[in-house]
Design a protein around this nucleic acid. Structure first.
Lengths: 189, 189, 189, 189
DNA sequence: AATGAATGAGCCTTCATTCAT
DNA sequence: AATGAATGAAGGCTCATTCAT
């Protein structure tokens, strides 16, 4: 199963969604097509499982990055999170791109985005407490806007294969975007 | 040609990307498949032409909305632009969704996004002049971030078919996002 | 279309139902698989069309055989009909066998049998009139029993590839079966 | 082995021939696919064994029904036999239908029919003896015709799922068919 | 310019069967 | 004897594209 997902990622990375056929994946994984179907209901199930795997990798990175941040100031926590997310897209950008596209194609983008939105919310809240409340609690629309805006910018950079993707200045702007928005929400319109 | 594009939009709207076959488009357009290929090099060309048509519609709306805004304050201009963009997605959301997906699938999202980025830049600049400079000039990364973040939030709302898509509160948050970012850029880090 | 049906009959004749694949039929017909699917919705549609063609052939034979029989005695008409039916199975018995099986597999056997039942009924009625009523009118169960019994015996002879299938003595027994039954119905239990 | 056959019958009953896969049968039987192949050479062997089991059930019923019939008149014995056969199809009609189809698909219908033909022959003979000879001895063609005609009518009623299948009037007609034929054979053409 | 029948590569998927454990 | 993961040939079917008319 892990081998199949790994093969799927490699196929996606090498040839994009067009090359992603069940036969190709099975062959790359070194198993028969029958075996692939023993583990995955259909082609789409492979894609979804891969998406989950990729997303989990992102979460792990972010969680790990935030672990030692207790006591860090608001902007420090936000920066750590963004750096972790951007960093999670290191390598295999085409595969991730394809996974993103595929998942978004099925209207399941919302579900996959939920944990990230939750992260941002929690980050805002925890930061907002000590020593003094910095940010207000976010409404559903606000959570939506800030999480999708952040991910949208990152996503575009991946999909458009922007050279500055992992530059410091890009990271700076993302941090600025999130902090500015959170600050604006707190200060009122 | 216009009939073919219109048919393509209808097919996309009715059945999504899965139903978008050259034969289906030709039949819906009332022309033969051969004729379709007389005007479009291949299936993808139809999609790109459609994307261009759709994007142009957005531009026209935005341009029209901003025409009478001379003298309006910064936040008024930004709100007008956002309202125009969101409004441009009225109706045929599935078709636009499919077009968005298709275009983004090909890494041509950047090209299509360029005019919007330009718009935001110009909006920021023009707003920044009179009566007194309000916003600083934007660097390429900054233009990228603010335009993709804005479009990313809108895009997600369309793709995820969010109920609040055309609500006032959603618009408010988008305006807040852009203004907060532009303000932060001006004020320094 | 005719070529495809003819190919289907040949494939069926040569290799039975197991060899009846859409690819094989298309190849034998000298057309591409795509062309086959332009004329038939799916594999099953080919089979049904073939069944209809085969059944029509039987009807034509029977109708033609009965055309000149006005004035013939009851047993003469019944014999003519049976001879026509049996004769219709001449050649391509495997194809007909496969068609029979396939059709019966789908519970559509009843529909295909209806015309034959009607034939027997009409034969019985017309015979029952002149010069004097010979046979009583048949109830639905009776029509069912006599038509299915007759066809069942013929069918078995085809499927089991009985040597006596087209012998005179076999025909004699079929005639005897039908006449005896019709007579018994008329005379009472 | 019995468990496997029972599972096969259930699968057939529930989903017809299409659902009848070796894996499905093994799973339903609660054994591994490997075990199934330990007892049956291949998929077809399962079907044949099931057919034999089903046919045996019919024979047992018929034999039992005829056990106490010594001294019964000819029509009494024939009716008892027919009632037993029809009754044997009670329940699991889909399974029996599938078995019938499958068996007949392989041209092995003849073998399975032989015992029934023998039964009819013996019934005719035994009936023909006491107290006075009633029916003449049957030729091979005659045995064939009467047994296949009878089974053909029953078979059709099962396959077409006729509502009157187990009605008294249907039974009456079957009895009439057999007796009329046997009588006609005896009386001469 | 327009037509549309024909093409065929190739996709997804099933399932009977094997064999090392 | 039993297991069940693995196999892979083969099938039905789609659809972008061509080309003779």
């Amino acid at each position: 199963m892990a081998a199949i997902l790994e093969a799927a990622a490699q196929i996606l990375e090498a040839g994009g969604l067009a090359a992603f056929t069940t036969n190709a994946v099975a062959e790359r994984a070194g198993v028969s097509i029958g075996t692939l179907y023993q583990y995955f209901a259909d082609k789409n199930a492979v894609l979804c499982a891969l998406a989950e795997r990729e997303m989990n990798a992102v979460f792990l990175r972010v969680a790990e990055a935030l672990r030692g941040d207790v006591g860090l100031a608001a902007d420090g926590r936000v920066r750590a999170m963004i750096r972790a997310i951007v960093g999670a897209f290191r390598g295999r950008q085409r595969a991730r791109k394809a996974v993103l596209q595929a998942i978004l194609s099925q209207g399941q983008g919302g579900e996959m985005m939920a944990p990230i939105a939750a992260f941002i919310t929690r980050a805002g809240e925890s930061v907002g407490r000590a020593p003094a409340p910095v940010f207000a609690a976010l409404s559903p629309e606000q959570i939506f806007v800030v999480s999708r805006a952040l991910m949208g910018a990152i996503r575009s950079a991946v999909l458009e294969e922007q050279a500055f993707f992992k530059s410091r200045s890009f990271e700076d702007e993302l941090v600025r975007l999130v902090l500015a928005y959170l600050g604006a929400v707190t200060d009122g319109p």
